[in-house]
Amino acid sequence: MTILQNPVSFESLDPGRSRAWPCDQDLCLTCANCSGACPVAGIDDFDPRKIVRMVSMGMADHVASERWPWICTMCGKCEQVCPMGIAIPDMMRRIRSLRARDQIPGILQSGLENALRTGNNLALPKEDFVFILEDVGAEIAEEQGFETFTVPIDKEGANILTTIHNKLVNTHTEDLKHWWKIFHAAGEDWTVAADNWEGTSWGYFTGDDEAMKTMAGRIVENMRRLKARTLLWPE
């Protein structure tokens, strides 16, 4: 943070702005319970109490231009302990939403753009996705007691539709097996959608409500299309 090097000019503060925020950060007592509970407090001097104060003083734009809001993991521990019940993770999202989309750090924005364009963060083509699922399914079928196992892709009328985290068809394919074997052993009627299967929604982390709406809408659409009764959305 560059606060000390570049002292704040009081003319730039706008406390009236706090009224336009969805959470009551102007109730903050500056007790630091949030900072004491935060698992990443201290990384590059990150301090949630300071962010809450800065926002309530009308310095949201200043905070938005800094690295701090992106250090937060959005875990919500701070909100749990805050004596004033201030919704700090919501506030972090709101701050992140103030940043130009091409200024979002890391792979968050490119992953999200992939998802909006292709239905998943990896831009994995449908044929490749189906191939990976069937390949993992074939591996399971080689195990004792799972000889009849197949992956029910795009099956209409199943009880459960499950979404897939992109890492499970990328670096963590082994982790698909646990769920699937439980479904099989339980005799569950389940399915996976071949399109728009992505379970993560990085608009949550980038503060992009529209993107979240789109991603959630696609899952709803899959539920309708496949006439599934129960949604399993483990993300």
């Binding site: 007790c31 900072s35 407090a41």
Partner: peptide
Amino acid sequence: RAIPGDIVQSEGQRLQLAYFDPDASRA
């Protein structure tokens, strides 16, 4: 200027206080 988040008891009944140190800017 910070309210501690937690206390655990270590050996010999010593109390370990967890808090955010505002001067050092770290937990």
